[in-house]
Computed example of a mutant assay.
Amino acid sequence: MTRPAQAAPGGRPGPLRRVAPALGLFLLSPLVAEYLLGNVPPSELWGLVVLAPMYGGGAIIIREVTRRAGRGWPTIILLGCAYGVLEATLIDQTLFNPAPLFEGDVSRGSTLIPALGFSAVNALGFTVGHAVWSIGVPIAVVETLVPRRATTPWLGIPGLLFTCVVFVLGSLVLFGGIRDDSGFMASPPQRIGAAAVVVLLAVAAFLVGWRSRPAKDGRSPKPWLVGTAGFVASAAFVARPEDWWGTAAGIALIAVTAVVVGRWSRGDGWGATHRLALAGGALLTQAFLGFLLLFLHGTATTANLIGQTVLVLGALALFLVAHRGAREAGEAREAGP
């Protein structure tokens, strides 16, 4: 009998299978961040060629660096925040650009900080939005799909270096394209300040979680409760008013969510199904918001609404597959050898 094509000598999976999770993350990140959100309509799916190197490349780098360093989700989320600042200030420079995000948008003016040249509500939205939906949710879903490799590197050093090159080139292409379209360039002090914030967030990412915290007494809540909390928290975040009160409420919501999830994650029984449920709640928020943004952006054509429905159903199917795998893996661990 011949050996399966994907199997390498010694029982190891073949090269394509080994990097398959990274390839999946490469595509899933921009699909969740821009297409499921409705920011880019399904009719422009070809844009993945341009968006995936930056979004997917960034997600892979963050995930690989975190896992190689033996760190966990606090590091991933803080690096996701650094990515959010990097994209919004140095790559597409949307945070500093005085042009509205879309026709009728007034979010910038409501919380503008003149001395810094950006809106507080937008700064919070871009940073947290990218950390959660561009980085956190896609990583959580793909890691759950490969439970045996959830916390191990997916790429070797050459693959990681290649991904870094792809990320840089993709970012430069987007930077150049947006610069040509808008003609806008942030001021040197703005860019220097933004770069400093990116570095500080990256450093902070490796200062947290370096020492394991003791587990607290009691069991973690059921995954369905965690998922419901994730949906409520993420929905409240995107629905908050775009003013100073909404900014303060968003910061408070993030702090409360971090404390609650941190306590839950130290409870007995916390595992992949809980992390996936939390990501699923945020994913559901993104799905609802996507249809709304299609109408706000004037792109809610019949074809785009059908395409958006297909995207949502695809995301649901992927979530269910991941959930089934996570549950079976958890049952296998409980059963023991």
Score class of each variant (00 low, 15 high):
Gly246Phe: 05
Arg240Tyr: 03
Ile254Arg: 07
Asp243Gly: 09
Asp268Pro: 01
Trp245Gly: 15
Ala249Glu: 04
Thr247Leu: 15
Leu253Asp: 04
Val260Asn: 07
Gly267Trp: 02
Val260Leu: 14
Gly269Asn: 08
Ala255Gly: 06
Val261Trp: 01
Ala258Asp: 08
Ala248Asp: 08
Ser265Met: 04
Gly269Thr: 05
Pro241Ala: 06
Asp268Arg: 14
Val256Thr: 12
Val259Thr: 08
Ala252Trp: 13
Val259Trp: 13
Ser265Ile: 03
Trp264His: 04
Trp270Phe: 14
Leu253Trp: 02
Gly262Pro: 00
Val256Glu: 08
Val256Asn: 05
Val259Tyr: 11
Thr257His: 11
Trp264Glu: 00
Thr257Arg: 01
Gly271Ile: 05
Gly269Lys: 08
Glu242Trp: 10
Arg263Ala: 12
Trp244Arg: 14
Leu253Ser: 02
Asp243Glu: 07
Thr247Ser: 15
Gly262Thr: 05
Gly262Ile: 05
Arg240Pro: 00
Ala258Glu: 06
Arg266Glu: 00
Arg240Ile: 09
Trp245Ile: 11
Gly250Pro: 01
Ala248Thr: 06
Trp264Gln: 02
Arg266Cys: 02
Ala255Tyr: 08
Gly250Gln: 07
Ser265Pro: 04
Val259Lys: 09
Ile254Lys: 09
Val261Ala: 07
Trp264Thr: 02
Trp244Met: 15
Asp268Glu: 15
Arg240Ala: 14
Trp264Met: 06
Val259Cys: 10
Asp243Phe: 05
Trp244Cys: 14
Trp244Ala: 14
Trp264Pro: 00
